[in-house]
Structure formats: C-alpha cells, structure tokens
C-alpha cells in the first residue's frame, strides 16, 4: 500500500483532476499527438517556441490520473525553458520512471513526485506519454504511440 501512496500522492491526484495548462495555444509553432493504445489515453500537445525558448506549452486530451498529472507537471516545468533544457529533462525523467538511475532531484524538481512510477512497470507508459509526445513535437515527428 505504501508504494501505492507513493504513486498516487496528493500532488498527482490534484494534477490528475485539475490539470494545469490544459488548453489550446493560438499560433502554436509545434504540435504533437500521443496515443497509448493499451489504455486509450490520448494527448495533443502544443508549444509556442521563440528562438530556442518555450514561451508557452499546453495540452489537451483524456487519460488516467498518472498520464494527466504527468502532462500537467511537464508543462509547468518546461514553461520558459530552452529546447535543450527540455531534452535534458526528458532524459532525466525517463531514467527516473524506468528506475534506471537515482533521481537527480535538483534537475527534476517537481517531477520527482513521479519517482514512485518506477515501482509500477505497467504504468511507465502512462507517465511518459506526454514526454514522448513532446519529443516528437520538438523533433518534428508524426504522432507517437507508447506501445
């Protein structure tokens, strides 16, 4: 049960229910579509990038608490960051939720709340859907699926 509490912290439940930056962006420069065919989660991610800086980032879609909270926190974390910082954070987040490395709490900041996902291998795809979608959006790829 403690692992479950670790996964579903108040913060995650809150962002799952009331996601931040849950909207569309007028004149977005980047857009990504993500889909998790296992659970039907769908996300549309939009960014407004000026030069190398993410001026705005927002998402819409439907998913479980983990994927929604993860997307919400991602947008908060990356607002105002550079694309290079976003890529680095993506890498750190991935290795944290896959349990590959001891989380770098300084770099991850609020995202560290998802460290508990590593204990739930079946839920890693939920937590990473928004991030894979981000990666596709900034690398200019087509829709991604986390299979």
């Amino acid at each position: 049960m403690s692992e479950l509490r670790e996964l579903y912290q108040e913060y995650v439940l809150d962002h799952g229910k009331r996601p931040r930056n849950f909207r569309a962006i007028e004149g977005a420069t980047h857009r990504g579509e993500g889909y998790n065919p296992l659970c039907g989660d769908r996300i549309t991610l939009q960014l407004l990038v000026e030069g190398d800086v993410i001026r705005d980032i927002a998402f819409s879609g439907a998913g479980c608490a983990i994927s929604t909270a993860s997307a919400s926190t991602m947008t908060e974390t990356l607002m105002g960051k550079t694309l290079a910082e976003a890529r680095a954070t993506f890498g750190a987040f991935l290795s944290m939720v896959k349990g590959e490395a001891e989380p770098d709490y300084d770099a991850l900041d609020k995202l560290a709340v998802f460290a508990g996902v590593a204990e739930f291998p079946m839920r890693v795809k939920c937590a990473t859907l928004a991030w894979h979608t981000l990666n596709a959006a900034i690398e200019g790829a087509e829709a991604v699926t986390t299979e």
């Binding site: 049960m1 692992e3 479950l4 659970c39 998913g63 479980c64 608490a65 839920r123």
Partner: peptide, 26 residues
C-alpha cells in the same frame, strides 16, 4: 471517480486482479 487504468492499479494493491483497457475490442 477514476480512469480504468487507475482503478486497475489501486485494486491490484488490494490483491484483486482485474483487466483494464480496451480488451482488444476498440
């Protein structure tokens, strides 16, 4: 209250195994 995926994980913590998803019938 909750997405099926969250339901599945929470009831599993109580030892209850159910299926969640589209059941190969999208």
């Amino acid at each position: 209250a909750a997405h099926p995926h969250d339901i599945g994980t929470i009831v599993d913590a109580k030892g209850v195994a159910i299926r969640t998803g589209h059941h190969c019938a999208q």
